[in-house]
Simulated scan of single mutants.
Amino acid sequence: MTKTTAPVLDTRALNRATLDRQLLLRRAELPAEAAVEHLLGLQAQNVKPPYYALAARLDGFRPEDLSALMADREVVRIVTMRSTIHTHTADDALTLRPLVQPARDRELTLFRKGLQGVDLDRLAVLARELVEAEPRTMKQLREALLAEWPDADPQSLAIAARCRLPLVQVTPRGLWGRSGQVALTTAEHWLGRPAEPAPTPDEAVLRYLAAFGPASVKDMQTWAGLTRLKEAFERLRPQLLTFRDEHGVELFDLPDAPRPAAGTPAPPRFLPEFDNLLLSHADRTRVIPPEYWGRSWVGNMVHSTFLVDGFLAGVWRLQEDALVIEPFGELTRAQREELVEEGARMLAGMHPGSSCDIRFGTVVHRP
C-alpha cells in the first residue's frame, strides 16, 4: 500500500489506538513487571512517577508491587531514552541501554570543552572500577575523576561517566516510602550478569509500535533520541500496515495491534509528571490539544497531568489535605464527577487510609 492510498487515521483514532497500547483505555490485569516491559520502561526523573504511571494503567496495582521488584533487582533506574532516567526491567536495562548508546556518545560532544585532554576510554575503565568497588554518588565520582584529570570540568567528567557506562541507581533510592540519595554502580554489577547485545533496530521498531503505535519514523526517533531509523521501517514495511495522519504523514503499525473506533469511550486518568504518553511522538497532538501545548510545565517545573476524553485536560497535585485538580478549560458536570471518582480510586490505591479531600482549583496561565 503506498503512501498516497493509505487510509487516514484522524486525531481521535490515533488517540484511542495509543491509549489502548498504553493500557489507558481500560486498566490491564498485568503484573507490574510485565507492564514495565510492555511499555518499554517508565519515565523516572523523580522517584514517584513510575508508581503513579502504573496506578493509572493496572488493575489492583499497589506501590509495593513495583517497590518489591526494585528491591529484588528485577527492575532498575537507569539513563536510557532521551538521556533521561527510566525504570526498566533488568533485561531491558541490559539491552535497551546498548541500543541508545549512540545517542549517549553524541551527548558527550556537548561537553567537549570541559573534557579536553581526557582519555574517555581510560575514564570509562576508571569510573567502572570506582562504582563497582562500591556505589558512588555523583559528587564522589566527580571528585575521584578530578584527581586523575585536575584541569577538566568536574561536572563534565561525571556526565562522561554516565554517558559511557550503564549506571543504575541502587536502592533504597526509588523505593516507595523510602528515601536515599542517588548512588550509582554499573547495571552489570548490580544485576550480576553481563550486558547483552542490543536488540536490532527492527526488533526495537516492533516493540515501539506495540506500545506507542501507530507511529511515524520521526515519532520513534523522538522517543528513542536516535536518528537513521528509516531503514529499519523500510525493511519491515512488507509486514506492517501503513496509514496517514490528517497532515499526510505516513504512519506504520502492527497488523494485529488494536485500533479502537474513534468514538470509543476513554475514562479520565491521572498521570505523573514526565509520563511517556506525552513525550514519545514527534507530533503530540494525538494526546495534547494544540491550545494546551506548554501548559503542563513552567520553566523546568513539570506538573502531573490528567486526561479527559483521552486528551490532556489539566494538571493536578497532592497537598497535605487535598488532591487539587486544575482544569485548563471548562468541564461538564459528568466529567467532573468522573474525575472525582477516578481521583478517589487513585488515592485509595496509592495512599490507603488517606483522608484527603478532592477539590478543583484554578490554573494560573503563564505564557
Rank of each mutant, 00 (worst) to 15 (best):
G361T: 04
E330L: 14
L120R: 11
A56W: 01
M301L: 14
L120N: 07
D309K: 13
F243M: 01
A55N: 12
R21C: 05
T305G: 01
R26L: 07
E330F: 11
L254V: 06
D72Y: 02
V287Q: 06
R286I: 00
T242A: 10
G180C: 06
R62Q: 15
V76C: 10
Q239T: 15
L69P: 09
N46E: 15
S179Q: 13
P63Y: 05
T332A: 08
R82D: 09
L312R: 08
R164I: 04
T362P: 00
F311A: 15
G263S: 12
R97S: 02
A32W: 06
D283N: 12
L240F: 07
L312D: 09
G329T: 12
R333H: 12
L236Q: 02
E326V: 00
T200P: 02
L14I: 01
G314K: 11
R112N: 05
L66Y: 00
L126M: 09
P98H: 10
R26S: 15
T185R: 13
K230P: 01
Q43Y: 07
A195R: 14
S354N: 13
G114W: 02
F111D: 13
T186F: 07
L115M: 09
V79S: 14
L331A: 11
A124E: 11
D121C: 04
L39F: 04
Y52A: 13
G213C: 05
A34H: 10
M346W: 12
L30F: 10
T332D: 10
P98L: 07
P265G: 04
A211P: 00
L318K: 10
V324P: 10
K3C: 12
G117R: 09
F111G: 02
A32I: 08
A344I: 01
G361P: 07
R366V: 15
R178F: 11
A282I: 00
T18A: 15
T84S: 08
L23P: 03
L130F: 11
L307R: 01
R269V: 01
Y52G: 09
H281T: 01
K48E: 10
I78D: 02
A210N: 09
Y51D: 05
L236F: 10
D92F: 07
V217W: 00
L40G: 14
P289S: 00
A133H: 11
Q43H: 14
E64W: 00
P63N: 05
S280C: 06
S355I: 08
V364A: 14
T89F: 05
E134C: 04
W293V: 09
E320C: 00
R317I: 05
A144W: 05
T109Q: 14
L110F: 14
T186N: 08
R259S: 01
L30H: 09
P260Q: 00
Y52T: 11
E231G: 11
L99Y: 15
D10V: 00
P268D: 04
V8L: 13
Q335P: 06
A198H: 04
A90E: 01
T11C: 08
E132I: 03
L251E: 03
R269M: 02
L24F: 06
D72M: 05
A53D: 04
Y51M: 05
L94I: 02
E203H: 03
A195V: 12
S179C: 06
L19K: 05
V302M: 11
V302E: 09
A322E: 14
Q45L: 13
L226H: 08
T264C: 04
A348Y: 08
V363S: 10
E273K: 15
